[in-house]
């Protein structure tokens, strides 16, 4: 039962990632095409452009949402791969909790940095 909901969430996050990550990829890599179309984001990997984006709440919010969704999708997928080896119930519990702890640490750290850079 629980795994059914986890799998449903995997599908939903997959669709969300397809949308959000496409926006992210287009903005980061197709800057020449975007400036041709009238959206100028000035060499997105330069320090100046990056720190300008970091000061906007919209970008920080988008990145934090993307981080949460991607971490769920990635770590749940990794868990599914590991569980295909059919470990015992005790091992499964260890794997699940390791992944939950790792994901929480990654999320907290990845949220702290953009929030700190909002004023930095």
């Amino acid at each position: 039962m629980r795994n059914t909901y986890l799998w449903l969430a995997q599908l939903v996050t997959g669709v969300l990632i397809a949308v959000l990550l496409s926006i992210h990829m287009v903005l980061m890599h197709l800057d020449a095409i975007l400036s041709f179309l009238g959206v100028d984001i000035k060499d997105p990997t330069s320090w100046h452009s990056m720190i300008e984006r970091s000061r906007e709440t919209l970008w920080a919010g988008l990145y934090i949402a993307l981080l949460a969704i991607v971490l769920y999708h990635a770590l749940n997928g990794l868990r599914n791969i590991i569980l295909e080896l059919a470990p015992s119930a005790a091992t499964e519990r260890i794997i699940t909790w390791t992944i939950i702890v790792f994901g929480t640490i990654a999320f907290v750290w990845g949220t702290y940095v953009p929030i700190r850079l909002l004023s930095g």
Binding site: T45, S46, W47, M50, S54, L67, V70, A74, G77, L78, I81, A106, W109, G110, V113, R116, L117, G120
Partner: peptide
């Protein structure tokens, strides 16, 4: 999927650890 997971970890380290340390570190990383 596993390849993208590896990239995701590198990408997260790159955009957090090297970004909070200021301009010089960021440009050296780039």
């Amino acid at each position: 999927g596993l390849g993208i997971l590896l990239f995701l970890l590198l990408h997260l380290v790159m955009t957090t650890v090297f970004r909070v340390q200021g301009k010089e570190v960021w440009e050296a990383t780039m």
